[in-house]
Design a protein around this nucleic acid. Structure first.
Lengths: 148, 148
DNA sequence: TTGCGTGCAAAACATTTGCAACTAT
DNA sequence: ATAGTTGCAAATGTTTTGCACGCAA
């Protein structure tokens, strides 16, 4: 099932209220930028997109909002190598990533079996699992084809 | 089975020779710093340790060497969050990581089943797998105990 | 009114690069 | 002699912070 933007708006409002914080249009605009994108975005990219809704937003605000939103579970991040971290809206469907080293494309996947396996591995070590990331690096079909 | 430092030295010499490059004590000292550490080290930490063997080594050299050594498969890196990348010597036993969000401790683990599963996932998408990383984030037994 | 949130600019970091000097081959 | 390698310092790119002002509650 998919969510409307208003669902995210509500979640943000609830979080903010329950913590005694204040609602701001900037955080909403950043969420909207993520909602309207299919891709994983860098803070810089999110900044550009959020500017469409709000001319006066600052890059620092984007960083501050992203780390807030991530800590509240509304967005997820993925970082690889030395490049800038990338963010995506948490749409409620957990998944992992395959990253093409040729073109940088990110492919999402979900494997039930993998999820279960991790639980077991963590349990075995007495580790309390909070989250995880599994990144497969390689070449996507297109890039492999065009390899010499 | 475990390797002596001289084994790594030899591998480095072979790689360098086969590529028509030159052998340098700096790269060896960086390898030695990693060999003598049980932990995952940042470039800065490797720099400090390598300085013990070679007073005049530069940080830029450490960065250059690490990226060379990683591309040759002699070292592996792990990066999470915004912090500096961490490196470890590739001791020939592939493994993944569990990272404690409480104390930052990194626990290594290896699961045959997990390795196989990844191969299958990649194959299913027509993706040519080169490498992967699987990071489990949570609380280690000690940190969970001391939680309030 | 209170204090959280923001924009801006400066600061802080991590990493990379240009360059002249050094050194293995 | 040649060309890879280095140290240093400067440049880059990303993320964080200090501060005065604005705004939601």
């Amino acid at each position: 099932m998919n969510y409307d933007f208003s669902d995210y708006q509500k979640r943000l409002k609830n979080i903010v209220k329950s913590k005694g914080l204040k609602y701001s249009s900037q955080r909403e605009d950043i969420l909207k930028a993520l909602y309207n994108s299919e891709e994983h975005l860098t803070p810089e990219e999110i900044y550009s997109k959020a500017k469409i809704y709000n001319k006066n937003i600052g890059l620092a605000t984007v960083y501050r909002a992203l780390s807030f939103l991530e800590s509240e579970g509304l967005v997820n991040s993925i970082s690889f190598g030395t490049d800038a971290k990338k963010y995506e809206l948490n749409r409620g469907h957990h998944h992992d990533h395959m990253i093409c080293l040729g073109c940088g494309k990110i492919i999402e996947f979900y494997e039930e079996e993998l999820e279960k396996l991790q639980e077991n591995i963590a349990k075995k070590q007495g580790f309390k699992l909070i989250t995880h990331e599994m990144n497969l690096y390689g070449l996507c079909a297109d890039c492999e084809k065009s390899e010499d």
